[in-house]
């Protein structure tokens, strides 16, 4: 890291952010903890006929109906079987509450603003557009997800086109 950057970060008392990490396929991703309402074990998801493909269905969250998104499908990954560690993360983004299904949820990490780098422009487009940045922590790459984009305008037009 270059020294001017470091200086800048320290002078701004370097904002510390908390991220919840989860795994999908072989990668670790992170979501800002403020957006995560809760993490649920996998429970039966009722499929919704006529819904977009990336919508797995709906679940009953204590009397409220919550839509669950197939994150693998959304990120252009191969589908996998539901396992014991499969979790549904209930997140609040763009003024709606949705669930995202992930392979497993790991921990909450503290990241300094200065540690976050913008994503290198590689990889397939499907997943690249949801990436806010990356962070190298303990020699592991953490991909930070931009949730608002996960349910952004494109999806609306997609919905409207049905």
């Amino acid at each position: 890291m270059s020294s001017p950057q470091k200086f800048q970060a320290e002078s701004a008392s370097d904002l510390v952010l908390q991220y919840v990490t989860f795994r999908l396929a072989e990668e670790t991703y992170g979501i800002n903890v403020m957006m995560v309402q809760e993490v649920l074990r996998y429970s039966e998801i009722a499929p919704v006929p006529g819904a977009p493909e990336y919508v797995l269905g709906i679940i009953n969250l204590r009397g409220n109906v919550v839509t669950v998104i197939d994150t693998r499908q959304r990120f252009g990954l191969m589908p996998s079987e539901v396992s014991d560690s499969t979790r549904i993360m209930i997140i609040e983004a763009d003024q709606q509450v949705v669930g995202i299904m992930v392979d497993s949820v790991a921990e909450v990490v503290y990241l300094k603003q200065s540690e976050i780098e913008t994503a290198p422009n590689v990889g397939n487009e499907e997943s690249a557009k949801f990436i806010q940045g990356v962070c190298n922590k303990n020699n592991e790459l953490l991909i930070l997800v931009e949730l608002d984009k996960l349910m952004s305008e494109e999806e609306w037009s997609e919905l409207a086109a049905i």
Binding site: P49, N64, Q96
Partner: peptide, 14 residues
């Protein structure tokens, strides 16, 4: 009756 979320709102037939 519980409304479907904004994401699924307007799904035909539901």
């Amino acid at each position: 009756i519980k409304p479907l979320g904004t994401m699924l709102h307007g799904t035909p037939g539901l």
